[in-house]
């Protein structure tokens, strides 16, 4: 038989499936107005506003405001995508049966997960490009050297792992609307009080607690990399710890449907 619909089943190569899934999810994320606001617009406002504010208010920064704040804004961008955007997108995928539908496609579960991670990196790459361009235009002068780039990338990877596992934890347990509310609320709280944009030293008494939060650890790791070209190790271990904790809890509690 050689009709139009004559069966010829088969899966695409796994890598191609994962790539397709990544591109699709990244495109949907960047198309969504709220997510774009979260990914790029808010970090740019925080950067520009923070540098302006530092002219009038003393944050106790040791560097020029643009040099002190840019690493934290990059950390904020990673947090917004890996945590908030991922949680909201996954929550609604569960609600609309997307995950169930993909569960009947050739894409295996770990391929779906790999696709999500790929999508996060694509969006983060876009964010880093936009934010760096804005920062350089404002006179950003990061620590010079190749190791700065590598350390920044390492902070981004570890931060993504920690926040993504926590984002999936929220999305896998709560209903879609509750996920939307919780992911935004946690983002706002961490942005304001989580030592992500401003260094922990700016928070007075909480200075020694905040670096243990994933937001504080990611912020400090970024600042270590981009201001001093240095990796202190402690923040990296903390981020890894959050990633392991988040992954274990998600693996136990996540419901695909």
């Amino acid at each position: 038989m050689s009709g139009t619909f004559t069966p010829m089943p088969g899966s695409a190569p796994l890598l191609r499936q994962v790539a397709a899934q990544s591109v699709m999810e990244a495109r949907l994320m960047l198309r969504n107005g709220e997510q774009l606001l979260l990914a790029v617009v808010i970090p740019v406002i925080v950067l520009v506003g923070g540098v302006e504010a530092a002219k009038h208010v003393d944050f106790g920064l040791d560097q020029r405001p643009i040099d002190a704040l840019t690493p934290g804004v990059l950390a904020l961008a990673v947090m917004s995508t890996a945590f908030t955007s991922l949680a909201i997108a996954t929550g609604f995928e569960r609600r609309y049966g997307v995950i169930k539908r993909l569960g009947a496609s050739p894409l295996p579960r770990f391929g779906l997960l790999a696709g999500k991670i790929g999508a996060l990196f694509m969006v983060e790459l876009f964010q880093v490009a936009v934010l760096s361009a804005v920062a350089f235009a404002m006179g950003w002068d990061p620590h010079a050297g190749f190791e700065t780039v590598l350390l920044g990338l390492e902070a981004l990877l570890l931060g993504t792992a920690a926040f993504a596992s926590l984002g999936l934890l929220v999305a896998g347990v709560l209903r879609a609307e509750a996920t939307l509310a919780a992911a935004n609320l946690i983002y706002l709280l961490l942005m304001a009080g989580g030592a992500v944009v401003l260094p922990a030293s700016a928070y007075g008494g909480a200075e020694h607690v905040l670096p243990w939060l994933p937001s504080g650890a990611l912020g400090e790791a970024m600042r270590g990399a981009l201001i001093h070209g240095d990796c202190y190790g402690q923040q990296q271990v903390i981020l890894l710890g959050w990633a392991v904790l988040g992954t274990v809890l998600t693996a136990r509690s996540f419901r695909w449907e």
């Binding site: 949907l28 995928e93 049966g97 169930k100 009947a104």
Partner: peptide
């Protein structure tokens, strides 16, 4: 499937 199974924005 019965009902949905697609991203609402796709």
């Amino acid at each position: 499937l019965q009902g949905s199974g697609a991203w609402s924005g796709a």
